[in-house]
Design a protein around this nucleic acid. Structure first.
Length: 110
DNA sequence: CTCGTGACTCCCG
DNA sequence: TCGGGAGCCACGA
């Protein structure tokens, strides 16, 4: 199919284990489009509510929450802390501890 | 079909 | 460390 990108994004996000996080750019790359970071964010936003995807486990490349400075922003951080993820004083996540890499199988999985 | 938008990232400075 | 500018692409209207 042509929209495998969208499909993979949902597949990958849904594969993120509890207590782990990843970045939009990485997901985009694994999904087949290294430049589709924004689309990942958009797709995720569009689908998270309909498919219950763990969008909160996806942050930007700095390890910070990118959502607009609103309630969602706080909500996301709260969810992550609930899963054991710790933020430093700058509000960032320690990638050396929480960064997650998907399994090729999960990406190809169809 | 076209157009506008955006939960990103890279590249300077 | 932080901010502005440009690029990229999917999706809804």
């Amino acid at each position: 199919m042509t929209d495998i990108f969208t499909f993979r994004v949902k597949k990958i996000i849904g594969s993120i284990p509890v207590g782990k996080v990843t970045t939009y750019g990485r997901v985009a790359c694994w999904a087949g489009n290294s430049k589709g970071a924004r689309q990942v964010a958009r797709i995720l936003h569009s689908n998270s509510e309909k498919y219950s995807l763990p969008w909160h486990r996806v942050v930007n490349r700095h390890g910070k929450i990118s959502s607009r400075p609103s309630l969602g922003h706080i909500f996301q951080r709260q969810l992550l802390e609930e899963e054991g993820i710790v933020f430093d004083d700058s509000g960032r996540i320690d990638y050396s501890l929480y960064l997650w890499y998907p399994e090729p199988r999960a990406v190809e999985g169809e």
